[in-house]
Design a protein around this nucleic acid. Structure first.
Lengths: 239, 239
DNA sequence: CTGGCTTTGTGAAAACGTGCACAAACGTTT
DNA sequence: AAACGTTTGTGCACGTTTTCACAAAGCCAG
C-alpha cells in the first residue's frame, strides 16, 4: 500500500502527547521490549489506555488485537507523522543567560534539533562561542537561516526584544517560532508559534498551593484533589 | 461583605491564562494606563474578547459596563486569586546545565519565585554558588525546604534521576513540582505537577512544519492555516 | 432625565477532548 | 476447527472550553 500522505488532521491535544509516547517507546525499545499494549504504554505515560489507543488510531491501524503494538514500527510511524525522520536545525535569537543555556543544553541536539546558529544584537557577544556555535550578529540572521535551511527559530531575548526577534525571524524565512519570553508576539498568518513561559508554569502551581491553603482553613469540604496530571503546555500553535 | 474564601473553582484553562493577563495589565499600569476594556486586553493577550470577559468573570464582577476594567484593581484581584500576594520560594533539584541556568535566570525571582535553595547529588557541585545561592547536597533537602518553608520544587536533573528527585521533594514536604525533564514522574495524590519539556515543544513545531511540507507537495487544498496563537504552555497542572 | 453609545456579564450553542464499554480481531490451546 | 482469553479500534455519552449574541448597566450630552 502506498504511503498515505497528509492523512487526516491530528488533534492538537494528540500531537502534544505523541512526543511523550515516542520517548517512552524509544526507551523501551532500547531495553529490548519489542511489543507493548496500550495499557502498558498508558501506565508509563501517565494517561488513560483508551486515550493512548485513540491517539494512536489517528496514525493508522498499527496495532494487533490480542497482542499490542510493535514498538519499533510504532516508533517509526510516530517519527514519520511528527516529521522527525530528519533533523530540524534551529536558530536561537539571544545569547544571554537563557540563550546560552539552551545552546548548551544537549537535550536539543540529542532529540533532533541541533543548534544551527545563534545570533545576538550585542556586539560584545558576537564572536563568542556557546554550545560549540559561534554567535553572529542579528543582522546576519538571514544568511544563518538560509545557509542551513533552518525553519525553526527560538526566541531567548529579553521580553522587550521579543517582537523584534520574531520580526527578524520571519523576515529571514523561519516558519515556526518557539518563544521563551513572557511577551506575546504577533506573527503573520501561516507562522506557527509555541510558547514556554517558566513564570506562568510556576504561577499555575502557586494557584494550586493557594487553593490548598484556602481549603485547609476554609470550613468546607476539601474535595479539591491535587492529583498531578502531565500538564502539557497549552500549546498554541496554528489552527 | 467578608472576603469570600474559596470561591467557585476556576477552570484550569482560565488559570493558565490569568498569568498572561496579569503580566499585560502590570505593564500597562506601569506606562500609565488606568483602565482597559476586554477588547484591548484581548488584543494584547492574543485571545478573543469574550474569553477575556468570561475568564475575568470567574474572579468576580470587577468591570464597569460601558467603561472597562480598572487596571490596578484587576491586577490586585488576579494576584490575590493566584496566590501571588507573597513570594513563593522554590527549591531546585539538580545543579547541572539546566539547574544553573534556571538559578541564574532572573525571570524567576522577579516574578515572585526566588530561588530558596539548590541541591545536587554530586559532591563536586556541592558548595559552589550559582545564581547567588550555595548548592547543598540532596540529602539536606529537607532542611532546605523547611528552613524557608518552601512548597514548590523544580526538577532540573537528568531524566533518569527525575523520579528520585520527585520522591525526595515529596518526602521533604514539597506539594507542587515543576518537572523540566522529559520523564513522566509519579507522585502521591494531592501533589500538583507541572511539566515543561523543551523537546516536546519543538517536536510539536516540527509536526506543523511537516504538515506544511506535506500540504505543499500534496495535491490538495491546503486549508491548513498555521496562524499562531499565543500558545500558553499547556500547562500542565493538576486538578 | 431621556436617548444614545459603549462595554460588561452571562445564558446557550457549538466545538473539542476524554473515558467507558464492547464488538471485532487475533493468537493459542485443545 | 472451535473455544477461550486478550487487546485493539471506535461509537457514544459526558465533561470542559470556546464562541456567539444580547440584555443589563453604566457614562455622557443635551
Amino acid at each position: 500500500m502506498a504511503v498515505q500522505r497528509s492523512r487526516r488532521r491530528i488533534p492538537e491535544a494528540t500531537v502534544a502527547r505523541l512526543p511523550v509516547y515516542l520517548r517512552i517507546l524509544g526507551e523501551q525499545f532500547d531495553i529490548g521490549v519489542g511489543n507493548m499494549s496500550s495499557e502498558e504504554l498508558a501506565e508509563l505515560a501517565g494517561v488513560n489506555a483508551a486515550k493512548v489507543r485513540k491517539d494512536l488510531s489517528y496514525l493508522g491501524s498499527y496495532g494487533t488485537r490480542g497482542v499490542g503494538y510493535d514498538v519499533e514500527f510504532l516508533v517509526y510511524q510516530i517519527r514519520r507523522e511528527l516529521g522527525l525522520t530528519h533533523d530540524w536545525p534551529v536558530v536561537i535569537v539571544g545569547a544571554g543567560n537563557l540563550g546560552q543555556a539552551l545552546a548548551g543544553y544537549n537535550g536539543f541536539g540529542d532529540r533532533g534539533f541541533p543548534v544551527g546558529g545563534i545570533v545576538d544584537i550585542d556586539d560584545a557577544k558576537v564572536g563568542s562561542v556557546v554550545g560549540g556555535v559561534r554567535v553572529r550578529h542579528l543582522d546576519e540572521i538571514k544568511q544563518v537561516v538560509q545557509a542551513r535551511n533552518i525553519s525553526i527559530g527560538v526566541i531567548a531575548t529579553p521580553g522587550a526584544a521579543a517582537q523584534d526577534a520574531a520580526d527578524s525571524l520571519v523576515a529571514a524565512g523561519v516558519t515556526s517560532i518557539l518563544n521563551f519570553t513572557p511577551t506575546v508576539i504577533n506573527v503573520p498568518h501561516g507562522i506557527s508559534v509555541g510558547k514556554v513561559d517558566l513564570a506562568v508554569e510556576l504561577q499555575i502551581l502557586a494557584y494550586h498551593e493557594q487553593r490548598r491553603i484556602n481549603a485547609a482553613q476554609g470550613s468546607g469540604v476539601q474535595s479539591l484533589s491535587g492529583l498531578s496530571i502531565p500538564g502539557e503546555s497549552r500549546r498554541g500553535a496554528s489552527a
